[in-house]
């Protein structure tokens, strides 16, 4: 019997893996991918809760999350491209101009 709790547990695991990836990785594109993984994990929890509560609001919110994530990726990757063009690097450690 697969209950919503199984899916919630999986979503927790994926979310934690994504969070650790954000903390550990230094390539900005990979950090972005880890953020996407966290958003996907949250979506899975939303859909599982929608099934559990027998309503579609959770699915709709997951849909909105996907739209916002797509917009975020577009802007974020454009920022990365322009940073790479100026600095020849996509490491998050190299974008330190604001520090000085």
């Amino acid at each position: 019997m697969v209950s919503p709790a199984h899916f919630i547990a999986l979503s927790v695991i994926l979310f934690v893996i994504g969070a650790v990836g954000v903390l550990v990785r230094r390539n900005a594109i990979v950090v972005f991918m880890c953020v996407e993984l966290m958003l996907n994990a949250a979506n899975l929890a939303f859909v599982a809760f929608a099934r559990m509560h027998n309503g579609l609001d959770g699915q709709l919110i997951a849909f909105f999350v996907m739209v916002v994530a797509a917009a975020e990726v577009v802007v974020g990757l454009a920022i990365l491209t322009s940073i790479f063009r100026a600095r020849r690097s996509a490491s998050v450690d190299d974008a330190n101009l604001m520090k000085y």
Partner: peptide, 12 residues
């Protein structure tokens, strides 16, 4: 579940 957790770990 096994596929997704394994590939998520592989990703990081």
């Amino acid at each position: 579940a096994v596929i997704s957790v394994t590939s998520a770990l592989g990703m990081i």
